[in-house]
Design a binder for these strands. Structure first.
Length: 215
DNA sequence: TCATTAAATTGTT
DNA sequence: AACAATTTAATGA
């Protein structure tokens, strides 16, 4: 899957490049909290970010993981609203920010950019529908398998390849299960030959089967 | 480069 | 949630 910026025309690409700045953050830092005014389109150049929120009772919930190559926050930028979710970094990361004027200019002028946005939004919609669906239908291993599969989604995170640096604890947080359950689930997925579990990393062997696990 | 130690991560109860 | 085992990273000779 081609990276979105590579599909832009020369002039559009230049404009995009000038409107993007990159900053480094360390593990555990928040990129933004609910209610912040961060009106920049946000991309993960390296590392992993997690979008989630904290309930009134203080319980943290992860909604979606954004690994290297993924972008988010377009809804906030388009609508000019405060952020509705927390974004926390799972590890040291480099984050790209595209300022709002640049984003809006591309939105108005670039066909390729819009195509990418639609594709991305469509994919994310599919993700949340799938999330609601398999939350009811699948056991912990199934949910974990599909969460991992979505992490490697070629549309949402085109840069990622088949290997990711992520601990079992982090996957557990993403999936919404305990670390113990995540550990067992990963072991059975590995036994079935769908992925390899390394120390602090995962290598996917069969993305197709992983994304259909439990059907 | 190797050995030692500390820290992080995993596997199990 | 706690513990032991394992792996990686850091340090210094």
């Amino acid at each position: 899957m081609a990276y979105w910026s590579s599909e832009l025309k020369e002039e559009e690409f230049e404009r995009a490049r000038r409107g993007i700045s990159i900053k480094s953050f360390s593990k555990g830092n928040y990129l933004c909290h609910v209610g912040d005014r961060l009106d920049q389109w946000t991309g993960v150049a390296s590392g992993i970010a997690v979008i989630g929120m904290v309930s009134a009772k203080g319980k943290a919930t992860s909604l979606i993981g954004v690994p290297q190559g993924g972008w988010f926050g377009e809804g906030t930028v388009l609508k000019g609203e405060p952020r509705r979710y927390d974004v926390i970094l799972l590890r040291d990361s480099e984050i790209a920010f595209m300022n709002r004027p640049t984003f809006l200019w591309l939105f108005e002028n670039s066909v390729a950019f819009n195509r990418h946005l639609v594709r991305m939004l469509n994919e994310r919609l599919a993700y949340f529908i799938a999330l609601a669906e398999y939350h009811r239908l699948l056991d912990a291993t199934g949910r974990l398998a599909r969460n991992i599969a979505w992490l490697f989604n070629p549309v949402l995170s085109p840069r990622i390849g088949l290997h990711i640096e992520i601990t079992q604890e982090e996957i557990a947080m993403l999936t919404g299960v305990s670390r113990q359950v995540a550990n067992k689930s990963l072991q059975s997925l590995e036994a079935e030959g769908l992925l390899n579990v390394g120390h602090g990393s995962i290598t996917v062997l069969d993305l197709q089967k992983l994304s259909r696990y439990g059907e």
